[in-house]
Write a protein that binds this DNA or RNA. Structure first.
Lengths: 317, 317
DNA sequence: TGGCATATACTCATAGAGAGTATAATTATG
DNA sequence: CATAATTATACTCTCTATGAGTATATGCCA
């Protein structure tokens, strides 16, 4: 790495650049992600020089694939660590990843492309019916062992602390946004197949959760983390909803993304007091129980409230 | 862009990859950014294949340059739009940008590298003494003209709305985080030298604010925006502070970053009730007025509160 | 000694979030 | 047909955080 002032024009060092998409949807109260290769990889491909921009190319591709406009795209992260490169490749690949939100509906999933429940890859992240039964035995206890196995005391303490914070042990609360930290911990401890295949150690029994090729599962974790954070301060859930929906459907979508249950009365109050939706006048008929009003997203809020608000105690005038 | 499932190993399409750093500090109540080429560019250089990771290389480089550990590094964005490429180059360059926080102190700024007040590049972003005098005449009125000059009515409305939101006109409040949107607007309107040089139109008098080479000013705006957002929910200001400081110095640093004044009593209450600092027992002597207590950052908060909190109305148990 | 400048400590009102309860309108079931 | 089950919707109560402003302490300097 140079970063020196002499060379402003980059020397012709050349890297392969790969685009990777985390494409999310919610269907039937379950979070879904678009995959290829029978669920073993995220959609990806080489970055070609004739695209106008990274985003526009991704958008076009997704719209072709799903037959549906891609409501929201944002760049996630650019990965280039050599120690996480695709299996055995000497060459370094730079992966620029994107998060896209859409609806599953008309998914024409050509070939073996298709939507998967993303908790297939991270079963421990779904706590809608409480912490999964296998969590303590299959994951936490083994991570505790890994933490204790560190060389020196300082490292042991550090690992134990990371473990407690990531998984909400001791007094820490569970924080659904820390999905990437949890995955990294499990990876470092050598408990996922990806780490094993990369030769970090002999094969211990991998923990529950489907692996992916290369570092795609890490990229997926990054995307889920971003989405879980974003639903809290930006009205992005609506990109995943059908044109009209009931408040319970909306709540179920949020719960699917967060992997947690929310308090119904307070959730409704939140939605209403922020004026995020408007009544359509119709009611849903095919649901059990009392029929619910159908709402639609008030798209005007996107313009009105360009971004959340301040947390700084500003002065007037 | 392919993203197709057949090609998972990227074809050997090759791009030049460039690293760019937005390195920030606060000195004497002013926000500073590390530059090279007499302030015309951000530190940058080709990405070399032997770095262990992008971040580690950046970190090493900065520590060599400033003689100071780099407290905080995060990836900003990866730029690759062809229409913003370096002047006249046919070749596409991918720029991976990073935000780093440090202290200016022992800046050994070799050669013509050095720290600059970042408001040299964005004078309209400093509102600590109110909106700058030139804002209305040199910027806003010209942007209004640009908005009115659009082809069709829809586009005119859209431009007027973007203008109002970005610059806090009409009823919108000023939002200091929208620095990138403001720069993009000015750029699109052809009012910055960078846009002029790229040949968008004949040279109108550029507005106040120093230009930079290529798209470095855009990258700087991205960095400032990220920092302005982050100080609100993460204790990152402290990376910019000396080991001990008074609460007023801390406040001045926040104000320098945000370009806005904060309410002193409430600011202190915020810091105290979040337990962000601890008393050192000493007081500052060289300041005017009543001597203030010196505090230090309670680094433990980094571990305790890994991340802010929830905005979702969760259910118990 | 009397400003002047800063530090530090309170007060008061209000908005928002957490938690829980009560009632209404359907369909399914015995 | 009555009743249970299920979902919808409307309130209540409490507490904390935030916005805004005021009052008092402690130094230096002319």
């Amino acid at each position: 790495m140079a970063l020196n002032e002499a060379a402003s024009k980059p020397i012709a060092v050349c890297s392969a650049v790969d685009l990777v998409a985390v494409l999310a949807a919610v269907t039937g109260g379950q979070p879904r992600v678009m995959t290829i290769r029978d669920g073993a990889a995220l959609p990806s491909g080489p970055f070609e020089l004739d695209d106008r921009s990274l985003q526009s190319g991704l958008r076009a591709w997704v719209e072709r694939q799903t037959g549906h406009p891609l409501g929201y795209v944002e760049q996630l992260y650019t990965f280039a660590d050599r120690d996480r490169a695709a299996e055995g490749s000497a060459r370094r690949v730079i992966s620029i990843s994107y998060l896209g939100l859409t609806r599953e509906e008309s998914a024409k999933g050509a070939g073996n492309a298709g939507w998967r429940n993303w908790y297939d890859y991270f079963p421990w992240e779904d706590r809608r019916s409480g912490p999964p039964a296998f969590l303590e035995k299959a994951i936490v206890s083994r991570l505790r062992g890994w933490a204790k196995a560190a060389d020196d005391a300082a490292k042991r303490r550090e690992r134990a602390e990371r473990l407690a914070i990531s998984f909400g042990l001791d007094d820490s609360p569970w924080n659904e946004e820390l999905i990437l930290q949890r995955y990294e911990l499990i990876y470092e401890a050598g408990l996922v197949e990806e780490a094993v295949r990369n030769g970090d150690r002999d094969t211990p029994a991998a923990i529950p959760g489907r692996p992916m090729l290369a570092d795609h599962r890490r990229i997926l974790a990054t995307g889920i983390a971003r989405l879980r954070a974003k639903i809290k301060y930006r009205p992005v859930v609506f990109e995943l909803m059908p044109p009209t929906f009931t408040l319970l459907q909306l709540q179920r979508a949020v719960e699917a993304l967060a992997g947690l249950l929310v308090h119904k009365p307070n959730f409704r109050r939140l939605i209403e007091q922020h004026d995020l939706v408007e009544d359509t006048g119709t009611t849903a008929s095919d649901t059990p129980g009392r029929p619910a009003k159908l709402y639609r997203f008030r798209r005007a809020v996107l313009a009105e409230r360009a971004v959340a608000g301040t947390k700084l105690p500003l002065t007037r005038s």
